[in-house]
Design a protein around this nucleic acid. Structure first.
Length: 425
DNA sequence: TCTGGGGTCCTAGGACCC
DNA sequence: TCTGGGGTCCTAGGACCC
């Protein structure tokens, strides 16, 4: 069997741990830039009908009238709370895959002779006691069935917070109680297709002929289908695989028309992405830069463009990447538009150790080695002394465009940036 | 006025190779 | 009627996840 441990309304729950005044009241955590709701308390869902992605301005009245609290997203806090939760889980279920910021899968193969339901109930209680975050645990034969069991735990088994989907009868009932577009792997598009074809529940779905599923939804759909029948098709990933691409982009807090601030922002994102690149000891051979206006403006004011740059020598050096990225941006920048976002995507990642010197390139292996040492030193200083202690000049200092985070809570559990105030020289 | 960001995987079609 | 066959690489777009 497999277990899925998933926090309830995770960001909201993490905020409530350190701000008890937020408990039992309708509230939500906002996306980057405070743009829309991305985590909602049960009260916000049930009493105020706030949905995932509800824009900020549509909730303003509920906020000003005191019916709803909100916070900017505070990933430093959430990441650290999750680290604590997964540690507790590991003491009980050691074979663990951290799947997302608020979920982990566990392989229970070594727990054959235990009362799994009771073990899970105890674990859940322990997590709540030690961290203050409520979680639900679903147990099933495959990842997809564990996901379904988890949703049912949240809906139907609120008191224990655990649902064990073991017997054939439990599985059948579980599938019948699950709407087809609530199945992990079936999104809104396929959901619509299936409902049109008269397939309403997960149970209807597993009773389709396999060929039909393959034709309608390609091999991914077939994988979900087989998983629901109890065949393990999605393996556990105990080690986090290296990223195949790294992208960084943010919406601005206001629209930007001038080229200079766009370049500053892009330089910051490139620095951020290349730091992640070095963290996994990779280099990139190509990247894409894009710029766009808001998608909500009228057609004639809309503009989006991108450009792919192939590097003569794969690198993870921030300076080189910023220089090339800015050149690219100058080629797609058109004066007169009100830009909402620029971004960069590093692609064609490969291990640093594999890099071969470009036969005709100017950069020698020696110079490359020196650069790597320098960047490693910068990364270390920024880690110890706080982010952005050492920056490239191109990243600018004022950052008038930077993200809106008006309702940010403190980083209660981690130190750096809260303790040390760093000034750019 | 105001609508997130970071990923992965698959497929189709075009260009090009011998 | 019937216009090779096998392959790679690239891009764009679609779908999904949190």
């Amino acid at each position: 069997m497999m277990a899925l441990i998933d926090s309830n309304n995770f960001y909201v729950s993490a905020e409530r741990v350190f701000q008890p005044e937020l408990r039992d009241k309708a509230g939500c955590v906002l996306s980057n830039n405070d743009g829309c709701a991305i985590s909602r308390s049960n009260e916000a869902k049930e009493q105020l009908g706030i949905r995932m992605g509800t824009p900020f301005f549509m909730m303003r009245e509920q906020h000003t009238s005191g019916k709803l609290w909100w916070r900017s997203s505070n990933y430093t806090l959430y990441q650290d709370m999750m680290r604590r939760i997964t540690q507790i889980v590991r003491d009980t279920f050691p074979d663990q895959e951290i799947y997302s910021i608020d979920e982990c899968f566990c392989d229970l193969a070594t727990f054959k002779h235990h009362d799994l339901e009771q073990v899970a109930i105890d674990l859940r209680r322990k997590i709540l006691q030690y961290t203050g975050v409520p979680v639900c645990i679903g147990i099933g034969a495959t990842k997809t069935l564990a996901k379904i069991a988890n949703k049912l735990a949240k809906k139907q088994h609120k008191t224990t917070g655990v649902y064990y989907m073991g017997t054939a009868a439990q599985i059948e009932q579980g599938l019948k109680d699950t709407e087809v577009d609530d199945v992990w792997g079936i999104g809104p598009r396929y959901g619509i297709k299936l409902i049109k074809a008269g397939v309403y529940t997960a149970y209807d779905f597993v009773n389709l002929p396999e060929d039909y599923v393959l034709k309608l939804m390609t091999i991914q759909g077939r994988r979900t289908y087989r998983e629901l029948k109890g065949l393990r098709c999605i393996p556990m990933e105990f080690e986090r695989p290296l990223k195949e691409g790294i992208s960084t982009a943010r919406s601005f807090n206001c629209m930007i028309t001038e080229r200079a601030p766009l370049e500053e922002a892009l330089a910051c994102y490139v620095a951020n992405a290349s730091q992640k690149l070095r963290a996994q000891k990779s280099v990139c051979a190509r990247f894409m830069v894009y710029a766009q206006t808001s998608q909500f403006v009228v057609e004639k004011d809309r503009y989006t463009n991108d450009i792919v740059v192939k590097l003569s020598q794969p690198t993870s050096d921030t300076g080189t990447l910023i220089t090339e990225a800015l050149k690219a941006l100058r080629r797609i920048y058109v004066k007169g538009y009100r830009y909402q976002k620029v971004g960069v995507e590093l692609r064609d990642l490969r291990p640093q150790s594999q890099v071969q010197s470009d036969l005709f390139g100017k950069v020698t292996v020696e110079k490359q080695d020196k650069l790597q040492l320098a960047m490693a030193a910068v990364d270390h200083i920024n880690k110890v002394q706080g982010r952005n202690t050492i920056v490239h000049g191109a990243m600018g200092f004022e950052k008038k465009w930077s993200m809106r985070q008006e309702f940010l809570s403190r980083r209660y559990t981690t130190r750096i940036e809260d303790v040390i105030v760093v000034k750019a020289i």
